[in-house]
Design a protein around this nucleic acid. Structure first.
Lengths: 196, 196
DNA sequence: GAGGCTAGTGGCACCCAGTGCCACGAACAA
DNA sequence: TTGTTCGTGGCACTGGGTGCCACTAGCCTC
């Protein structure tokens, strides 16, 4: 046998995501219809929407697994380190891509950060991240994830991470880790560069 | 004459927004069609989309003016105060509603923060705020709005403000200003409550 | 090997958001 | 009175997303 059903499905999923990324990059997210992505991936429009509940989701890939990894990293982290250092480290680890994956990552993030429809959709993803981080903070501080502090840390660290991504995208030089650390350092130290 | 065209248009706009807020609150954003909002406001579906480019926009009201006010406040602010204090004050001033406006504000923010479609749409609005704040930071620090620091300050202060809103919504007690100040204090001082 | 069960797929029809086009009517100007 | 302009509504169309059903490939059981 050359392929089981599961392997088949994974191959199809990969084809869909590549087709989506390439077509959206080439012609813009809104100008490409779901039909065209499906055709390019060799499946029907109906099946396309079975793989991805939304056109936008085709860009994000297996994002749920990234969130799960972030969650795992935070749960397994050493509690002796400062909370923000733990979160920073988790963000860096989750986004530790090999050089061969960087082009796809750039392509994906460029779309997410520049296409309005994807920018909007991203908020729903960010909310999942924020929740995971807020829960970690609540565990560490003994409060509720619904309190101000956990929520604030979740939202602002995510803002820092996304800012690092955006700057990494626009500059063709420094590493993503470097930007992440710079952003988290500013946040952790109360923005010393603002020269208060 | 009882009303000029402009006054007429403002009255229609107000009716549309009230109808939208009430229907969305009552039955959920997705379950209400644009036709129904239009009918409730006494206009046609086609005209509804002339007043608001998107169903989601009907919830936001005159948001552009809020952004413009924030921009004005930041431009007119005293440069001797710390940057973050200036931004905090601007946020507080922009959101300084009278007691009679609080119910509508709650209704609006509850929708925006809980309905997924509106949550997604909100990112596009946040981007405008982030830009204005980042430009202010760039002016104060002499850098470019595209640099890491201005972007980071824009994104994280907005995160702080929205977190304050969310907590204010879920708790029926403290004032919005109070939550805003608590959030900005944490952010400004490097999250002292995390007891590093 | 025949018959049944299951899961993935595609086609079809439908709902709804959003848009371009045009026709109509009211207000206003000449 | 005759244009002209502008706001409105109707109509048709595109495209995202969904429910339903039929088909088929595998696979299990006898």
């Amino acid at each position: 046998m050359t392929s089981t059903g599961k392997e088949q499905a994974e191959a199809v999923r990969a084809r869909v995501e590549r087709a989506a990324l390439d077509l959206f990059t080439l012609r813009g997210f809104d100008a490409v219809t779901a039909d065209e992505v499906a055709d390019a991936a060799g499946i029907s429009r109906r099946t396309f929407f079975r793989y991805h509940p939304t056109k936008a989701d085709a860009v994000w890939g297996d994002f749920a697994r990234h969130v799960a990894r972030l969650d795992r990293l935070l749960r397994d982290a050493d509690d002796s380190a400062p909370v923000l250092a733990t979160i920073c480290r988790a963000y860096v680890d989750v986004n530790d891509y090999g050089p061969e994956d960087l082009p796809v990552l750039r392509q994906r993030m460029r779309l997410i950060l520049t296409e309005p429809a994807l920018q909007a959709h991203s908020q729903l993803r960010y909310a999942e991240i924020d929740r995971v981080v807020a829960e970690h903070v609540a565990r560490r501080t003994g409060g509720s994830p619904a309190d101000l502090l956990p929520r604030l840390v979740g939202a602002s660290t995510r803002a820092a991470a996304m800012t690092a991504f955006a700057v990494w995208l626009s500059e063709n030089g420094a590493s993503l880790r470097g930007h992440l650390h710079r952003a988290f350092d500013e946040l952790t130290q109360g923005f010393p560069s603002l020269s208060r």
